[in-house]
């Protein structure tokens, strides 16, 4: 388990991280979310021991992270870096060696990961000649080919088309199957929501919320009900619900936020009695809703 306890880090007068505390269970896939400048990258750099916290502790399975441990970790930084003149295989071999892989396993892993990320046909081409998306897959391969026990991926989906995003998701699922603990930071909520099991939203250097999606949803005060058709009779039923708030929605659908514990079966009976109800749906808050609320820009 990775444990951050009361971690602080400043750069001169700027306090980038202020008392961050969270835990990531071994084998979990953890979404670290937050707006730009929230302190995500600084937190990730401290986890990898690139930066040293001013205060607080970071441990992996109860031990402070050192160089030997870091060799078993993987990292894909947000700002991509690549040796343009090196061929794909050479680039992967260099990073594989730095992570402790040696032949014949090194060669085997290079081939496996090129196949997995669908870049095998570029193996003998200089990285600079590849498209941005393929360069990104090379970098993912470099960070993952030693099959790390702990892997941080900062904005891994950025710049990938939907097909390649799916290829990357498959690779992440493979890493999950090996028991790796993954940390993903991304602004693409849909992918994060699909692949992550735990989440932490930070803003202004503070942890705003963290937990599983179920736990985050449990803390959410409202649920959204969708009702069709958008008739005056049905609308009047919804308007009578205490503390209900109408939400903008597409034509033909009524959308209302209602208190979390509201009795939806009772509402269904009322709506059926009121008119020709064709749809009633109770929606859980999305990760995007939770994120926007947590960083104080919504709700």
């Amino acid at each position: 388990m990775l444990q951050l306890t009361d971690v602080h880090r400043s750069f001169g007068a700027v306090q980038a991280v202020r008392g961050v505390t969270f835990a990531i269970p071994t084998g979990a896939t953890f979404g670290l979310l937050g707006p730009n400048g929230a302190g995500k990258t600084t937190t990730m750099r401290m986890i990898l021991n690139i930066l040293v916290p001013d205060r607080g502790t970071i441990t992996w399975n109860g031990t402070r992270i050192d160089g030997a441990m870091r060799r078993r970790f993987g990292y894909l930084p947000e700002e991509r870096g690549i040796y343009g003149k090196l061929k794909v295989r050479e680039q992967m071999a260099y990073f594989g060696k730095l992570h402790g892989l040696r032949d014949p396993l090194l060669g085997k892993r290079i081939e496996e990961w090129m196949e997995r990320l669908e870049i095998a046909q570029y193996g003998d081409r200089p990285c600079a000649e590849l498209s941005k998306g393929n360069q990104q897959k090379v970098q993912v391969a470099c960070a993952s080919m030693h099959e790390p026990e702990f892997l941080i991926l900062d904005e891994p989906f950025s710049g990938l088309d939907p097909v390649n995003a799916e290829v990357l998701l498959d690779a992440l699922r493979y890493l999950q199957s090996t028991g790796a603990t993954l940390v993903l930071s991304s602004h693409q909520m849909y992918q994060i929501e699909n692949v992550c099991t735990e989440f932490c939203i930070i803003a202004g250097g503070h942890v705003r919320v963290n937990g599983s999606l179920g736990e985050l949803r449990a803390q959410w005060p409202t649920r959204t009900v969708l009702v069709e058709p958008s008739s005056p009779m049905l609308r009047s039923v919804l308007e009578r619900i205490p503390n209900a708030t109408a939400r903008p929605h597409e034509n033909g659908t009524l959308a209302y936020d209602v208190p979390r514990n509201f009795d939806v079966p009772a509402l269904a009976r009322e709506l059926v009695a009121a008119g020709d109800l064709t749809r009633l749906e109770r929606m859980e808050p999305s990760l995007s809703d939770i994120y926007l609320r947590a960083i104080g820009e919504s709700v």
């Binding site: 160089g67 870091r70 870096g81 690549i82 040796y83 730095l98 960070a143």
Partner: peptide, 15 residues
């Protein structure tokens, strides 16, 4: 390495 942003990747792996 600095301008190609590969430096961060390297210092995450080695000292």
């Amino acid at each position: 390495e600095k301008t190609s942003r590969i430096a961060e990747l390297l210092v995450a792996t080695t000292s």
